[in-house]
Amino acid sequence: MKLAVQVNEGPYQHQASDSAYHFTKAALEGGHDVFRVFFYHDGVLNGTRLTTPPQDDRNIVKRWVELAEKYDLDLVLCVAAAQRRGIVDDGEAERNGKDATNIAPKFRISGLGQLIEAAIQCDRLVVFGD
């Protein structure tokens, strides 16, 4: 079955990112097609490669990256939410004159239309938020 996942909260502050990750992983391992994971609001903070959690804690960003590498998962950060919170890729850095980028590998920044499209294309939308 084709599934879409939406993540509305930042990592470490709220369990939503963890729940979404474990759900997505279980769905992929169960042979389902996760069409897209869409990160909205503070959820875009799941996509910064500059995250440095303490050694005895899980690395939430790295976990997403590894899952995406294994399953070719589409991880999309909402562009407006990312701009507000300083998550930057090459394109955004150039457009908005920023001196650095911080997006994690396998993530991409795109518009809200990606969420709508996922909702239309998929059999189920599963929302994780506060």
Binding site: A26, A27, H32, R124, L125, V127, F128, G129
Partner: peptide, 18 residues
């Protein structure tokens, strides 16, 4: 979590009551 996925699949849709 696998059971969570099964529940999602076996219902019409999911409503998140946050």
């Amino acid at each position: 979590y696998a059971g969570f996925v099964d529940l999602v699949v076996s219902h019409d849709k999911v409503q998140a009551w946050l």
